[in-house]
Nucleic acid binder design. Sequence first.
DNA 1: TCTATTGATACTATACTGGTCCGGTTAGGA
DNA 2: TCCTAACCGGACCAGTATAGTATCAATAGA
Lengths: 141, 141
Amino acid sequence: MSFISTRSRYGLRFLIELSKRRNEGPVDLGSIAEDQAIPETYLAKLVVPLRNAGIIRSARGAKGGYELSRSPDDITVLEVVEVLEGRSSLLECTERPELCARSADCPTLPIWTGLEKAVHDYLKGVSVSDAAAPRAPDYAI
Amino acid sequence: MSFISTRSRYGLRFLIELSKRRNEGPVDLGSIAEDQAIPETYLAKLVVPLRNAGIIRSARGAKGGYELSRSPDDITVLEVVEVLEGRSSLLECTERPELCARSADCPTLPIWTGLEKAVHDYLKGVSVSDAAAPRAPDYAI
DNA sequence: TCTATTGATACTATACTGGTCCGGTTAGGA
DNA sequence: TCCTAACCGGACCAGTATAGTATCAATAGA
């Protein structure tokens, strides 16, 4: 549907689970997939970019699984979204203005750039540990 | 690609043109399509929801065309985006939480709701006349 | 009536989303 | 050592959205 697809949404829920189960050692994908009701094979694919980005680390073999490789305080939702959506931007125009011949004097460009910044600032201000917190914090409505 | 597709982008540029050519009478689609370098047949489709929403009005026949039916101060970019993207939300979860069985205690829902609000507030604060202004106003970077 | 212009509908190519499937690799434990 | 739980990687697929194109009808001015 959009900028925030199931990739980000599932991925974030996965990371929240990992943060709740810290110091249990590696958590296997299947158990998270099951209790988050996310198709395991699909989740398995989301996990790849998260690992490549250094957000989680994996352990292979029996008793293997995944764990956060950093404190959940240090993982912003912005980073998760960028990694999982594979782009940092809502719009090509703001990310690569050179692709648009009109960008130099496009009257709408500053609007989209401003929107981008609003989104960016908001997402950067929320971390995985905020998300995992039991009570609704101040980023909520 | 996303929440802000060519529909919103073309549509907004179209409205900005109309606002610049106010009191010329109805402006024909072809001339705007040409100088904005937007495929005319595509733009013709975007114009329909804008008319239905009461943002523009049309005149048929020779010397026909389109004009803003309100002051460009009274048309927010939020309205344009909502009308042209056909939804008000980046996410199903925030728009129709009842569709998701988990929404009641989904830890990520407040995050997406907050993001939604940030986007909404920003877009509501910019009008077509702001966009048409020659100098970059304060909504810009 | 001729012609410019909107209005409405149907069609299409391409890419993205949200998956599934399957064979292979790694490593812990009996 | 061998079994098996778990990760790894790639191919594949159906459905939907995006960005158009094409065609024809309706309307109004000259």
